[in-house]
């Protein structure tokens, strides 16, 4: 059995090594796949804050992923058409700057997460799952009918947005950028999990009444977690849209929300590296098995079933010999 810290470091090294190898072997598509995995991992790290630490099974996290995507799409669209965005008396110029887009995505997702969280955290269990799903679907259908930004067809952005000091069109540079953001999110996750806030949130998942008895409001803990969680997933959405240079309502789809949960369950719920392992396996399977058969999801389903039945700590739990979803 491997110590979890050693395993985590190994996973990160391997994750960074694959695109570097691809650069050497001149396989740019592999770099793009690794970038896709890093971004999905980032989205799942966001969800893991709510799901893994707080036990909040949100089936609506695509809402934040999509919001991040549209934050990028709308700002870049106005920049590439040279038509400022007009909201009532406000005139906002579009932008091709990633930092500005990221901040917009973070703020927009956090605000929407606050509203969704405020309303849905009144419920628990299956009702919480359903109400978050409903909010996700509301945004999905809104995006479909939003003809100003492409409606069902989505929006294409011709040139990837820029980051100071980098040429984001070079695959390895864009990978480096997304990997750095992923690392930052992992640091945030680890810091949150071991902070008094994270411990109390973890406790609120286990025994909300006991948490209240030590003077902490479980509802408030969960809401704060949900907002941070949604913001991180929103940031991932902005990066994802930039990877594809395209944003469409499918980023809001409930299938995507489900996939994020699956990624976490595969890797290990509440584990620091759970989302990273899950996303890497998911993208790898999608690429290799997907190339062999269009029914590759059956294989994924089999893996998921095996893990849920025999290794509740996911791949990380299996490798570290620590069963159970303990964080």
């Amino acid at each position: 059995m491997i110590r979890e810290n050693v395993l985590n470091a190994g996973i990160l090294l391997a994750f960074a090594a694959v695109p570097l190898w691809a650069l050497w072997a001149d396989e740019p598509f592999t770099i793009t796949l690794a970038t896709r995995a890093a971004i999905l991992a980032l989205a799942a790290v966001g969800l893991n804050i709510a799901l893994g630490i707080g036990g909040l099974v949100s089936l609506g996290h695509a809402a934040f992923f999509g919001l991040g995507g549209y934050a990028m799409g709308i700002l870049a669209h106005h920049a590439q058409t040279y038509a400022p965005l007009e909201i009532g008396p406000l005139t906002i110029a579009g932008t091709k700057s990633m930092p500005v887009i990221w901040i917009t995505a973070l703020v927009a997702s956090a605000l929407v997460a606050w509203v969704i969280g405020k309303l849905s955290l009144r419920t628990t269990g299956v009702y919480f799952i359903m109400i978050t799903l409903a909010f996700g679907q509301m945004l999905y259908y809104f995006a479909i009918s939003w003809s100003a930004y492409g409606g069902e067809d989505g929006l294409s952005i011709y040139v990837r947005n820029g980051f100071p000091g980098l040429n984001t069109l070079v695959p390895i540079q864009f990978f480096g950028l997304t990997f750095a953001v992923l690392l930052a999110a992992l640091v945030l996750f680890a810091a949150l999990r071991s902070s008094p806030f994270g411990l109390a949130l973890n406790a609120a998942r286990q025994a909300p009444a006991r948490v209240a008895a030590v003077g902490l409001d479980p509802a408030r803990l969960k809401l704060v977690a949900f907002v941070i969680s949604g913001a991180v997933t929103g940031l991932a959405g902005a990066l994802y849209a930039d990877l594809n240079r395209f944003v469409s309502p499918t980023m809001f789809s409930w299938q995507l929300s489900g996939e994020l949960i699956v990624l976490i369950v595969i890797g290990g719920v509440g584990r620091l590296m759970g989302p990273v392992v899950g996303a890497a396996l998911f993208v790898a399977l999608e690429h290799w098995l997907g190339g062999l058969t269009e029914y590759w999801l059956i294989a994924l389903g089999g893996i998921l079933l095996g893990l849920v039945l025999f290794a509740r700590g996911g791949v990380i739990g299996l490798l570290t010999g620590k069963a159970g979803p303990h964080v």
């Binding site: 009444a209 948490v211 209240a212 008895a213 030590v214 003077g215 902490l216 409001d217 479980p218």
Partner: peptide, 8 residues
Amino acid sequence: WPSHRIAR
């Protein structure tokens, strides 16, 4: 008062 406030 909710219980967390009483504890506080």
